[in-house]
Write a protein that binds this DNA or RNA. Sequence first.
RNA 1: GGAUGGAUUCCCGAGUGGCCAAAGGGGACAGACUGUAAAUCUGCUGGCAUUGCCUUCGAAGGUUCGAAUCCUUCUCCAUCCA
Length: 407
Amino acid sequence: MGIYEELKARGLIAQVTDEDEIRELVNNGKATFYIGFDPTADSLHVGHFMALLLMKRLQAAGNKPIALVGGGTGMIGDPSGRSDMRRMMTVEEIDANCRKFQKQMSRFIEFGPGKAQMVNNADWLRNLNFLDFMREIGPEFSVNEMLRARCYVNRLEKGLSFLEFSYMLMQGYDFYNLYKNYGCNMEFGGDDQWSNMLAGTELIRRKLGKDAYAMTITLLLKHDGTKMGKTSGGAVWLDPEKTSPYDFYQYWRNVDDEDVVGFIRKMTFLPLEEIDEMDKWKGSQLNRAKEILAYELTKLVHGEEEAEKAQDAARSMFGKGIATDIPQTVLKDDDFKDDKIGIIQLLVKAGFATSNGDARRTIQGGGVRVNETQVKDIYAQFDKAELAKNETVLQKGKKNFKKLIVE
RNA sequence: GGAUGGAUUCCCGAGUGGCCAAAGGGGACAGACUGUAAAUCUGCUGGCAUUGCCUUCGAAGGUUCGAAUCCUUCUCCAUCCA
């Protein structure tokens, strides 16, 4: 079975421009492909992770990846599939985000001579001369066609600025440029990128009379069609500073029954036969599958050690024992008043409440426990010496734990 | 440039002078039930404080005892015409 067949079996392929040709190139390691990442935040998230995994799989099959960081396209902002305009970022923000992206990516993909390459489209987009650019590629784009692109439908009702409308030209130009200067013959991306990617293959055909190919991967969706990767705290980030390995693990540990096996298939490197077995699991058996999913993904993102730690912590917290490796909250001297601290302050301090009022409501709703004992009194006080002496675990709801450390 | 409609709390959306920190829904969070699942039911959803106070309805001014609601100017958006 070639890599193409495997991708297909894992349910990763959404759309392709020319199936036979792509299969041929990819299975024989003859593809030089690129995937673009726009620096919209200061960390990669799960959506990007899907793309990075694809890169890894294809690289393992002998193909040459180019990771493109969008220091240029990020100046514009991709309107595809969005219902409103992105906030315009400053150049400084964009560049800072680009650096973070580059750093994170190099943990997943091997870069270097003969391996993967990293490029930044700021290098060729930022200094373009508007008129030259327009005269070079403007004639190759049909506004009529662009308006028909499905990724804009929302925006045609709600408003689409010319700035954003021009995004497609930039992405098309990227591909064209990479084709000419890097021998890149294929572009991959999320399924929402389809129109933008076709802009590139079209441009290459018209300008150079050559064929280039595009393939999209299925977006990671829940069975009800909503997007994955959002939590109460926002997105699920790959940066351990923004989403701790424990939280990352928990996120996957808690996916819907109906989604688990599909996610394992799409995102892990486990053999397909093993996954086919899991397809037969039912009911609470699926908890095992959820552990596998959470463990495997945490391992991929944060390494084996962190994955073990997260798993142990989760098992003991939800089993009986007291966990050792759960997130901590450090209490300093000035958090105490007369060597005491109130339960409300503790919750806020631990990040379990956004305000005192929020903390109060959570307590009154019965959602707070200290060492497994429910705290109902919003004025409950805790003694500094006691906290320092005995290990204390603060719990909000069923799944949020923090160990309290007195400094 | 002209005409019309619009901007409300995380999102959608009601509210046209006091009873409005603002209906309803969604989402989020918490409780019950469970399998750390889903569905369901319940609570809760601006901030600070022990009755109360402070900030919020695109922005700035004004009218009024009192404004999300009325007036003026401005900004932004949509639709139609150019």
